[in-house]
Design a protein around this nucleic acid. Structure first.
Lengths: 232, 232
DNA sequence: ATGGCGGCTTGACAAATATCAAGCGATCCG
DNA sequence: CGGATCGCTTGATATTTGTCAAGCCGCCAT
């Protein structure tokens, strides 16, 4: 892959501290690829040949069973996905598809495992990354098991608002049907859930969401850092 | 803690490969404690002072929000819990309570982090453990989002049967109300779900479960290694 | 033994959620 | 400019799940 892109990868927590020689060795086997929207990058059950790094665009991690499917997470730049499968040399548990045009680095999994075996800094960085991922899924699990769909939506909107800069109005930059899937409900029920939040000052016009009174919505949503703060 | 117990801890994947000196250093700060049943060991939100290792008994990991609560996992000997919080030096995301009389090792988190910084083997072992935990939660998440409660119960019984030795009849060694919570339903609905599995040959008498025709139940349950095989 | 107590089950009912069908309103393309 | 397509919304209805109340049963302690 072109050396021009090394710095932005090197800047990732995962690669920042490792020995230069090992980093270069990883990069030598890696390559960057541009994908159009809606391309399936990997399928669950396949062997984990590559660690993926999203440089631009976004990727949907989803899973299928018995004719149903569900979105489990969205990967945004700049971060990696399927690290756990790579280090365990186990099959992917989720499939991945681009949501939009995306630039993605592919690093052969065996290289990652080889360097991981010899570079303690890299191993420690992987620990931090995995611990972060683990805690995020636990939070998602709590969200799903402890809250109703209306509460999940309310808290999602509050998180999204914060990430979008905190303004009272903001745009959803992806399809509502995906949001429904992420939140564990049907698109029809998402529509109704938005209506159900009107009494708390939420208005929707197309992709534009407005929160009239944040404190009011929070009184209903009861956000909790142990579920909603995805930075710790 | 008594040196007599070092070997069984040392035998854990997490501690097997690390340098002897570092292992001893970890053990020096650790201590074993016996807990009666139904004791809350840790509460979510607290700082993660200790890495826990269950030597005997069993521990329920659960979480609470807005007056509701849910069981997220059961820890059985010999394994650790709250490793992620320990390495990230972040608050616990789950509470833990003993289900029965349990012997538990407490290792100060700061010792774990200190050794983790200097012992590459230990760091690598932590990676493997965390990757395993991560993948388990992803599987639980898929189970919850892709299956109905009846399907979850059916697959749970098949997994439990396999773990209990594969016999057609076996005993549930914990309360059904906990099973209901683990499966994300109410005790009342668990009762009804058991009845709903009767047409597939499942019979229940107290804690005793019998699966008349495993193939029949599997036709309904459609177990999938990417959800139900917790060993990879 | 026997009187509570707790967990489990059952039934009736309520609430939440999914499904099905139809219509609306953008956008894309011939 | 139609006309088709696709995602979203809405209403009607079915299914699933939760809630409440009552009763059952085994267990423990007096």
């Amino acid at each position: 892959m072109p050396e021009a892109q090394y710095p932005e990868i090197r800047a990732l927590g995962l690669f920042a501290e490792m020995a230069e020689a090992n980093f270069l060795s990883l990069m030598r086997g890696a390559y960057v690829q541009n994908f159009p929207p809606h391309i399936e990058l990997i399928s669950e059950g396949e062997p984990s040949d590559f660690l993926h790094v999203v440089l631009s665009g976004s990727v949907d991690l989803f899973s299928t069973w018995n004719g149903r499917d569900t979105s489990l997470a969205t990967v945004r730049p700049i971060s990696t996905f399927i690290l756990a499968a790579t280090v365990k040399n186990a099959p992917y548990l989720m499939s991945a598809r681009t949501l939009e045009k995306s630039r993605i680095v592919l690093i052969p999994s065996q290289d990652v495992r080889a360097i991981f075996d010899v570079d303690g800094s890299f191993a420690r960085a992987i620990v931090t990354e995995l611990a972060q991922c683990y805690r995020s899924v636990i939070k998602a699990q709590k969200d799903l098991k402890l809250r109703t769909s209306l509460e999940r939506l309310a808290n999602y909107l509050l998180r999204y608002q914060k990430r979008a800069g905190g303004a009272a109005a903001f745009d959803l930059d992806f399809e509502k049907r995906r949001l429904a899937s992420v939140l564990g409900m049907t698109p029809e029920n998402l529509s109704r859930a938005f209506k159900g939040l009107q009494p708390y000052g939420v208005t929707v016009e197309g992709t534009r969401i407005a929160i009239a009174d944040q404190a009011d919505l929070e009184r209903f949503a009861r956000p909790n850092p142990l579920i909603d703060d995805h930075s710790t």
